[in-house]
């Protein structure tokens, strides 16, 4: 304190420096908190089955592909993986196909009922949506959609659709209306203006929300476990076999779930804020 009063400028500079160090230390610590558990899972996935069950553990992977190859060759895994991809792809198509037009309408028009629709979309957030798989299971049996990829994709679309609407809404809102109007004055119909001006500008964001829809479906456990029996997705398969499967199978399966997620989040990182329907400057 006395030093600070003698040389106030240096004192403030020191305080700033200390603050900077604290900030960086906190940031690093928080990063470690997030990354370390993932790293440990990957260590397990990249070790041989014996190493996974052995004690004490090594903190570095041996890059033995034993666990992973066991996992891939385990009965049902390849099919579950394939089912996950199919369901997630269908979810992605449905969510964007239904969500993007709605997002566009919300961003460009004022019309009676707009508030009601937004409320409907936001309301889905306040409900534990996977629970809706319970009544749908019955409905699907009646309509022959039970245990099918499309049936599960429909439920996953309920989860992904509100996000698709909100992301595309904020995306289209960020594209100035004047660009569209300029296109109209230059001879475009509404559809031509959308295709030639709006779509090229919105495409990266639409792709991101598609990836996000894919991720939601890829990760979903409860509805997948409720609605599939023969055609299990990866999450449903892992959940089902939690009781009996060996540790190295679980960890390899965990890694198979996590690694795509890392890539997904990296791909959509610019649009993280848009998905909560909040603007970020």
């Amino acid at each position: 304190m006395s030093v600070a009063t003698e040389t106030p400028v240096a004192g403030i500079a020191d305080a700033h420096k200390a603050g900077d160090w604290l900030l960086i230390a906190t940031a690093v610590l928080l990063c470690v908190w997030v990354l370390l558990p993932i790293y440990l899972l990957i260590v397990n996935a990249l070790s041989s089955p014996d190493q996974v069950t052995a004690f004490p553990k090594r903190f570095f992977p041996s890059f033995d592909l034993g666990s992973l190859s066991f996992f891939i060759n385990f009965a049902g895994v390849a099919r579950a993986l394939w089912n996950s991809v199919i369901v997630a792809t269908l979810t992605m198509i449905l969510a964007i196909g239904f969500g993007a037009p709605a997002g566009y309408a919300l961003s460009r028009f004022d019309f009676p009922g707009k508030g009601t629709f937004r409320f409907l979309v936001l309301m889905t957030r306040a409900f534990p949506l996977p629970l809706l798989a319970l009544p749908l299971a019955v409905m699907f049996i009646r309509t022959g959609l039970d245990d099918t990829a499309i049936g599960l994709a429909l439920v996953h679309t309920t989860l992904a659709l509100p996000f698709a609407v909100l992301i595309t809404f904020s995306l289209f809102s960020c594209i100035p209306v004047e660009l569209e109007e300029a296109a109209w004055t230059l001879g475009c119909t509404r559809w031509q203006a959308f295709r030639k001006v709006i779509l090229p500008l919105a495409l990266p964001g639409i792709a991101a929300s598609a990836v996000f829809a894919f991720t939601i479906s890829w990760n979903e456990v409860f509805a997948a476990a409720v609605l599939t029996i023969e055609n299990r997705t990866l999450t449903a398969f892992l959940l089902q076999s939690l009781g009996e499967s060996p540790l190295y199978l679980k960890f390899a399966g965990g890694a198979a779930l996590v690694v795509p997620a890392l890539i997904f989040i990296f791909a959509v990182r610019k649009y993280l804020f848009a998905m909560w329907g909040i603007a970020n400057r």
């Binding site: 004047e178 660009l179 300029a182 001006v197 090229p200």
Partner: peptide
Amino acid sequence: AMVFQNYAVFPH
């Protein structure tokens, strides 16, 4: 033909 306040030059 119209000239807009924020120009509306197509960015792509």
